[in-house]
Nucleic acid binder design. Structure first.
Lengths: 359, 359
DNA sequence: ATCCGCAATGTATGCGCTTACAGTAGGACG
DNA sequence: CGTCCTACTGTAAGCGCATACATTGCGGAT
């Protein structure tokens, strides 16, 4: 790392001009074979790796796509990076209490999808998880380094997004489509919930149902609630007869609300606007010895892995998260290819997955 | 996106020089407040976002760290990106057969750790999953864009790694330390396996045991096997009395080997060099109605989530994957701060986790 | 009143690469 | 044997920013 060699160094060693070096790397066919070999040999000899930044600057294109999502604030950042080379390997017994919520799973999958699609299209991926105050600065920073940016809904202020969007295409992930000029990619929240609730109310003939919504400011959540109401309507149930609780998408809160509901009355079904919440409700029901699905039906939304392993397994609406990531990148590259495109809103299909909690 | 504004545009509008604009952004205190306000107002008005590439070029430092790992070749790349806006929401019943192996979990966690650490140190993270032939080109490309690179062991040829390492610090993840001049970060494979095997042979007094190793070229696997042998030795068991099968870390292969083992004789314990393999063995045992742990003990290695949910749950050695990611970034930044540092090898501690398959 | 020092800006250069445009040499052609 | 074209290769001009260095005011010291 003494000092990274540049085109100039390579050119000198190969007795050619820097333009030729560049050509060998970018369009090898434009250079005579003997020259090319000479250059490549110099490249190898010197350990030359072209500077992506210089290239991007000259070419006016970075070939990188950015992905921004909310960070894992909660993780234990302080864990020691101890050198202890495992002289002592502790043995612990896992009685189930160690199971921590690994709920970034959602983003992991979106990320994977984005990565796949980016790779296919010859883009690299830059990821940034924003936390706290530095968020805005980070977004701005990233925006300066990429050709396009995918942002998770509600993680960045509209104002900043608008600012950034003047420079590069921005696509908002998993937020409902709004007329804000950005491209949107989301899942079919409303129809998904409607279908699921339709199953609860129809196939099971339930009328005594409770709904637990998510945070007030989530557009996805709003759509789900709308879908639920549509299902109520279809089933001929008066909306005002059905209690709607306001949760916040966490399991913890799901438990709290579950307690509150049961303190008053045990409904035949609890429909939750996400899986985490539903898992919290299951916790409470199990603790009280109330049988699911015999006594109470429970449903979630999202299709997280934990729902496949819960007791009982959780009926839910599965969102295509990998596809979301892919679609986001796709939307960006599409706009890159044709900047005149009108703002698009892509809604990906979902799937109702019936499991034990509401067969 | 008509044409992104530059420092020049901002400077003109604020009636200052480009140097002042740059200063306002980099070291605000060096500029008089009134001037600063004028510049910021121009920044907002024009929607100016500084070019990260130009900056990196001028500053000779990108503030980005790269992470390279093997790609998800296997994923169904062809899945349609259909526009179908969920008019029809399919309802499917999940009887358990849908459970696909989401085994990139390992990388997801490493990635998360790297992300956290990078963020703390003011670096952005660029990820690339390489597949097939494009791998080498990709690594080279990435290397030209970052200040340091973390690479998963055995995903990139030593030759290319050496080439790249002449330009930037490179740290190899999860490969045993070798005297190759690179920094290494890995988990305590040998001692971990030794402790686990010690438990099997000691606490359970097992003597009739079989070992299923991983691929020949995995240094991690070699260390585990060594650890296993050390445990045999300690227990006074003659090494040649214990059959060692060669697997490839996949569940599929674990099943195949499990069949082969059982066709011949049912041992008291099967020690596997990773969780996937162990899960495959569990599959076979369950299919044959052989009870675990009553008839046969089974152990894995890695601590993947699936092992917590398997039937029975899987005893294993847990690797600190998030920590691995963090440590990798840490190593890179350390070397960036002091390039004269000698090559380091960090070995992170592991933990034996006892679950139902071998309590 | 003169000089010095410091704060605030401006000037100018270069980071490493791409790429239009300008040669240059050799062969085909008339 | 001169002309043109083709195939290569070189020349030079940025890309957008950071920063060393020069310049300009201004208040305080002398």
């Amino acid at each position: 790392m003494a000092k990274a060699p540049t085109v100039y160094d390579v050119a000198e060693r190969a007795h050619v001009s820097i333009a030729t070096v560049s050509r060998v790397l970018r369009s090898p066919d434009a250079v005579r074979e003997t020259t090319r070999d000479r250059v490549m040999e110099a490249v190898r000899y010197l350990g030359y790796v072209p500077s992506g930044n210089a290239r991007a600057l000259a070419a006016r294109r970075t070939n990188v796509i950015g992905l921004f999502f909310p960070g894992h604030d909660d993780l234990d950042i302080s864990a020691a990076l101890s050198q202890s080379a495992g002289a002592e390997v502790p043995i612990v017994v896992d009685d189930g209490s160690l199971v921590q919520e690994t709920e970034n799973l959602y983003f992991d999958e979106v990320l994977r999808g984005a990565e796949i699609e980016a790779w296919r299209r010859g883009f690299a991926l830059m990821v940034a998880a924003g936390r706290g105050a530095s968020r805005e600065a980070l977004v701005n920073d990233i925006a300066g380094r990429v050709d396009g940016l995918a942002v998770l809904a509600r993680t960045v202020s509209d104002e900043l997004l608008a600012h950034v969007a003047r420079r590069i295409p921005v696509v908002v992930l998993a937020g409902s489509e709004r007329d804000d000029g950005f491209d949107h990619v989301s899942a079919s929240n409303g129809p998904g919930m409607r279908a699921l609730a339709g199953h609860v109310l129809g196939a099971h003939g339930v009328r005594d149902v409770v709904y637990i919504a998510g945070p007030e400011d989530s557009p996805d959540d709003a759509e789900r609630l709308d879908g639920f109401r549509a299902a109520l309507h279809e089933a001929g149930i008066v909306e005002s007869d059905v209690p709607v609780y306001r949760g916040d998408f966490t399991r913890e809160r799901g438990r709290a609300i579950g307690e509150r509901i049961l303190a008053y009355h045990t409904p035949r079904a609890v429909v939750c606007s996400n899986d985490q919440t539903a898992l919290g409700v299951l916790d409470v029901l199990e603790a009280r010895g109330i049988r699911v699905p015999d006594d109470v039906l429970v449903t979630g939304f999202d299709g997280i892995t934990a729902g496949r392993h819960s007791r009982p397994t959780l009926t839910t609406v599965h969102q295509p998260m990998v596809e979301l990531g892919r679609a986001a990148v796709h939307a960006i590259t599409a706009r890159l290819d044709d900047p005149t495109l009108a703002a698009q809103s892509l809604t990906l299909p979902v799937q109702v997955v019936l499991r034990a909690s509401c067969p």
